[in-house]
Amino acid sequence: MSSEKIDSVLLISVFSILAIIGALIFIFTVFIKQRNKLVKEKYENQIMSERQQHALELQALRSQMNPHFVHNSLNAIQYYIQRNEVELSEIYLTKFSKLIRSFFTLSRKRHITIAQEMSLLENYLSIEQLRFEDKLNYSITKDTELDEEDIIPTMLLQPIVENAVNHGIFHKATTGTVAIHFGYVSEDSFKVTIIDDGIGLVKSKAIFDNSGKELNNRSSSVLQDRLKLLEYSNTWKVSYTLEDREDTEGAIATLIFKPIEDEHTSIPSR
């Protein structure tokens, strides 16, 4: 073979083999890279849609008002009307309508300020106080270090306060007190304690057991669902404990709030 022919042969062989190897490497590199990109996009879309779904579920849960509470309030108003206590029934009705309006307005929001939450709880407890007459006292306080404009998940506390009133104070023979305190923990965290001097968790459960009724606590289940969804939606880290008081009778619920900031959430800065 002439040297020119050998060169051509070598050139064709090298070109063919390099083209094959190069094509295989190129195809697999490009496809694997694109596939990973597509998988990532799909995963992110899925996460986004799950979060949207959680947000909707949270909104639905927020807008749930305990039917027992509505029923009890309307019964109380009816009771005052029947007793001809028009002024009292008007006060009751005004507070009740204000509370319902707040429920509907705030339930659309994911977060409200601590001041709004305090006002909502104040309104709720003042209605319950009317129903319980002299049997219920309450206090809502806040540490001075804690900013009133700090945000909190909307209406998370109301079901806990509702439990304290209906399961703690309701069964108590004497006047009961519910004390709600918003405490400063750190720059990005705060604590809410709901203390009642009612009959406590153990006795409350025993009453239910003796009555033969199943303890179907709607407020607690709504609360558990909401805490779970808040965790899934990656917006808040909320640690929740509920236990009997050691110093005296009653229960103490503690919630520690810490907002989670990540690329998928948009919690307003505190």
Binding site: M1, S8, V9, I12, S13, F15, S16, I17, A19, I20, A23, L24, I27
Partner: peptide, 22 residues
């Protein structure tokens, strides 16, 4: 098919030029 084509194309081109490698 692509790998076959890439390997076969140089041969087909050399066929058209009446030159066949060894």
């Amino acid at each position: 098919i692509l790998i076959f084509t890439l390997g076969y194309l140089p041969i087909t081109f050399s066929l058209t030029k009446d030159f066949l490698p060894s």
